[in-house]
């Protein structure tokens, strides 16, 4: 049998390394639930909750400390939801889901808020079509801050705020196109 030269052996080893790397990558993707794009990961995320597919109102890309999280704001029939997908070197994976909430059509605004790590998100849907802008008040210790979204994502709104104290959503207000406040909801905190 012909003896292989060192160069041939090196080429053989490089092929083995490539095959192993492909096997590991494919195995990692298959085992840990990674998707090639964010939209597919989002659809899978909703499906695992037996929810949706929702009508996406907005995709808020690359927020958070590492700029690797994408938020999907969506409405599905009588529910609204904010879903996240996260990107890392293997692709996109299912991230946090902030829960699915029923839209209360009796109220002008349906909303929810969550704190995760140091990030607070407030989001919701305006049932009143006159609402064009939404403002929220957050209490951070002794301080109160106000955030405003001048233009809704069709009927949805979304706030993301880095917080270090324990934040509390105290009030949420809806404004019409003239900037006149047409509703104000106290959260009771």
């Amino acid at each position: 049998m012909k003896k292989w030269s060192k160069k041939q052996k090196l080429i053989r080893n490089i092929i083995i390394i490539s095959l192993l790397a492909i096997g590991i990558y494919a195995g990692q993707i298959a085992l840990s639930g990674f998707y090639r794009d964010a939209d597919t990961a989002h659809a899978a995320s909703e499906m695992t909750l037996h929810y949706g597919p929702s009508e996406t109102r907005a995709v808020i890309a690359e927020v958070g400390d590492e700029k690797n999280t994408r938020y999907y704001l969506g409405v599905y029939d009588e529910w609204f939801c904010v879903d996240t997908v996260i990107k890392d070197w293997k692709g996109w994976r299912i991230g946090r889901n902030f829960g699915i909430h029923k839209i209360d059509y009796q109220k002008p605004l349906s909303y929810s808020w969550h704190i995760y790590d140091n990030e607070m998100v407030v989001y919701g849907v305006a049932s009143d079509s006159n609402i064009a802008a939404v403002e929220i008040s957050l209490r951070l210790g002794d301080q109160t801050i106000e955030l405003r979204q001048e233009e809704l994502f069709e009927d949805m709104f979304f706030f993301s705020q880095q917080v270090h104290a324990d934040p509390i959503l105290t009030e949420i207000r809806g404004y019409d196109r003239e900037g006149i406040m047409i509703c104000s909801l106290e959260t009771g905190y």
Partner: peptide, 24 residues
């Protein structure tokens, strides 16, 4: 060439262990 050859073996062994631990 020899260094590359030796390193390739180290890498192969590492990848085999990694493949077994994380996939197989």
């Amino acid at each position: 060439l020899s260094w590359l050859f030796h390193c390739s073996w180290v890498l192969i062994i590492f990848l085999i262990v990694f493949f077994i631990a994380t996939v197989l």
